[in-house]
Write a protein that binds this DNA or RNA. Structure first.
Lengths: 215, 215
DNA sequence: GTCATCATGTAAGCCGTTACATGATTGC
DNA sequence: GCAATCATGTAACGGCTTACATGATGAC
């Protein structure tokens, strides 16, 4: 999961570890947040594998301006790209994704053995997929949620009390809520797919010309 | 978490590992289900610590009758208590909770550093708590969820796209849904607390006597 | 007699956390 | 110059999963 999140973020902009961690926490929620102890080793591993590489290390300036806070990463990345040594924050390692990393990202995005948290991250970066792949991702998830719902109704025996019933009901509602969400995503995906199929046939729309390689 | 779930289940009935695993899966959902590789070591650990002890080992019969499936555990436990060697399934270890185990259970139920999954299990067995403790448990959870909601609105900057926005919105809805649930539990707890306080004093009001400390 | 299921356990390994170690920069 | 924050790492440890090893029983 951490690889997916790192590659997804680095595909959008170059970042250094510390900033990466912040955006990661933002993405998956402060809770279950990734720690340095897993982030840095993960970055090292990805670098060794050639999926990311350090760019502009040690020369980069950083925006210390607190700002809205969440913008500092973008500023840092911006300055990193410019190579401007504004105030001279030191041994920071700004990472960028490689072509190999992008391939790996696409693979991870398609992985169907993903757990719940990983699925969330897949959704967060699923713009990197082709419309049809995105749709397939959502459909798989829908099937999985329906399976859980079925399991849930099948059992229901055993000791029960107020709290266990309440818990069970709440869980069911949560899954149902997830299903509604997924259904919306699926609808949107299908619409998009139909639209792009239409444009491909007689180029009505000025959009999406580049997807020659499938569909 | 596994200790809490095991002790909670064994507090209701004596069970052997295999059956325990089924009920555990039922409790926390088939997904994120506990595996034998963690269950048996956990049982061994708890036994060594004196929190559970094996009862009726090796003499016990088991109901092989498939039935509705979920009932088999209760039947097994029932027969275990009777000591009836129906057909003679062999080296099964039926565990029971000890007084020390019950103490440990109460501690785990009150632990406020519990993660999300653990909290669910705490709710499942919170009947073992005193009304006031139960209320405190729910209130803490409510505070935690509100904290997350606050974090969530604070950030919201950074790169966004359709899918990230949708994910974010869905997460927010999920937390809100959890909050509604907790609020209901809290209301019920307060009512119960007031009622028991009322009967204890001289049964005047059936409502809100216990909340001297806020509102 | 053999296959599926019930049943218990062990071992290797992954993944992630906490805690520790280090050090530069900025604000006061 | 001192504390807080930024920044990067390492080390120890824990918990859980997968896979393996074992074996009894009941159904066919």
């Amino acid at each position: 999961m951490i690889d997916l999140a790192i590659l997804g973020l680095l595909d959008e902009q170059d970042l250094h570890g510390y900033e990466l961690k912040k955006q990661l926490a933002d993405l998956v929620g402060a809770r279950s947040g990734v720690s340095f102890g897993s982030l840095y080793p993960a970055l090292a591993r990805l670098e060794k594998a050639g999926a990311v590489k350090a760019v502009e290390a040690n020369t980069v300036a950083d925006a210390v301006i607190p700002m809205t806070g969440a913008l500092s990463g973008e500023i840092a990345a911006f300055r990193a790209r410019l190579g401007r040594p504004a105030k001279g924050r030191r041994n920071k390692k700004v990472y960028g994704i490689t072509e190999l990393g992008r391939q790996r990202l696409r693979l991870l995005l398609l992985d169907d053995h993903a757990d719940d948290r990983t699925f969330s991250v897949q959704v967060a970066f699923c713009q990197n997929l082709l419309p049809a792949q995105r749709l397939a991702l959502f459909e798989r998830r829908k099937a999985e949620l329906n399976r859980r719902l079925a399991d849930r109704t099948r059992v229901s025996a055993g000791r029960t009390n107020t709290y266990r019933n309440s818990l069970r009901e709440h869980d069911t509602e949560t899954i149902t809520h997830d299903l509604v969400w997924i259904d919306n995503l699926i609808d949107a995906s299908r619409a998009e797919l139909a639209e792009s199929a239409g444009t491909q046939i007689h180029s009505l729309e000025p959009q999406t010309i580049g997807d020659s390689h499938h569909e």
